[in-house]
Write a protein that binds this DNA or RNA. Sequence first.
DNA 1: AACCGATTGTGATTTTGGTCACAGATTTTC
DNA 2: GAAAATCTGTGACCAAAATCACAATCGGTT
Lengths: 206, 206
Amino acid sequence: MEFNIIIADQNGKELYSENEIILRKALDKFNVLNDTEFSDFLSVCEYMEFAKKQYLLKSGNYNHGIYFVISGTVGLFELIDGKEMYQNFFLECEFANELKSLTTQTPSTKNLIALSDTTLFHLSRKELLELYEKSISFERLGRKLLEHILNAQNEISYVLQSLKPEERYSYLENKRPNLLNNIPLTYLASYLGLARETLSRIRAKR
Amino acid sequence: MEFNIIIADQNGKELYSENEIILRKALDKFNVLNDTEFSDFLSVCEYMEFAKKQYLLKSGNYNHGIYFVISGTVGLFELIDGKEMYQNFFLECEFANELKSLTTQTPSTKNLIALSDTTLFHLSRKELLELYEKSISFERLGRKLLEHILNAQNEISYVLQSLKPEERYSYLENKRPNLLNNIPLTYLASYLGLARETLSRIRAKR
DNA sequence: AACCGATTGTGATTTTGGTCACAGATTTTC
DNA sequence: GAAAATCTGTGACCAAAATCACAATCGGTT
């Protein structure tokens, strides 16, 4: 069961639903879009729902856009030697993406999957590119979003390169506690480049 | 000793030096800047030279821009438990960067160092931001460059997360052979998250 | 040419974390 | 609510890689 709070202007005209306000707040952190531009952005977003275990993107297919997670959890994984290696997790208010396929227009080697019942906005590649053409603001938003994603990616590379198993667990505890609560240990182990059993034993010691 | 070939227009007026043509070619891959915009870009680039072992950026300092490597090699490393952990290498025609400090304006935890005598163009943070304001083209260039960097970063994360030591070496052989030729094994070992001795033994077996 | 520092190779040893196996526990499904 | 599937915990064992130690080699400098 779910209610969408509707914000109205002085004339009682509906403005934004609750979901849209969540997106607005997330985008406002980048300090780029004004009201008009946000409306333009919103007008090309499609609201979608995925049940747990449904795929947003399957390997072999082309990536047709990016997702903004309103509620739920999305996982990004790649099948390597028959093992699901999770490369990222996207929680509420984050943009779920697989950029390699999106930017190079090659079939994706990776999968996006709903790890719980999930609601999200979808922005297609086509619409995204049109936004980029439309105004410098959307290019700027894209640029800043990428800077943000890249900094996060550098951090996880650092974890994999330099930290010992116990330190990797501490990293989760301190920097991404929400993952520890929401994601099965098995998936987290692959994310951290460890055997499931190793991570289980580390946790037992706490 | 070094010659710069000068390209001249019909009136014999100098256009671009050899170094500038190298930069032009690198930027043209992104298919964004026209002649005027490239000239604008160039006008805020400063030519610099660094001797081997000189620092382009020292940890603790603020990152004041990005570098385009004309010739030579630049390394990005972080001191962890007294060890130099190399996180990236930048060869000719690549943009050497440390984006965390650049984008968040916090003191850098990382170092940029010339691993050989190096010539490059420097673009200051201030000038970069002014370019971003100036035209959508520069935003677009930034966005595309970040997409490119991010795809590369995802790949190295994959290597660290999923590949065994021998496979990591193979990755270098196949995907980044220039590193194997130009960079000391010690540095490559840290880059791959391996002990120096392990990498040495792997190489001995080939 | 001789020196010094940096880099690499290699053996012996130790340790860590992976693998295997199986039992509980927890969720999902019908 | 029972069955099935998924997830987690834990012990025993093993293999791979880290560590330690030292020699050899390479590169640049005076």
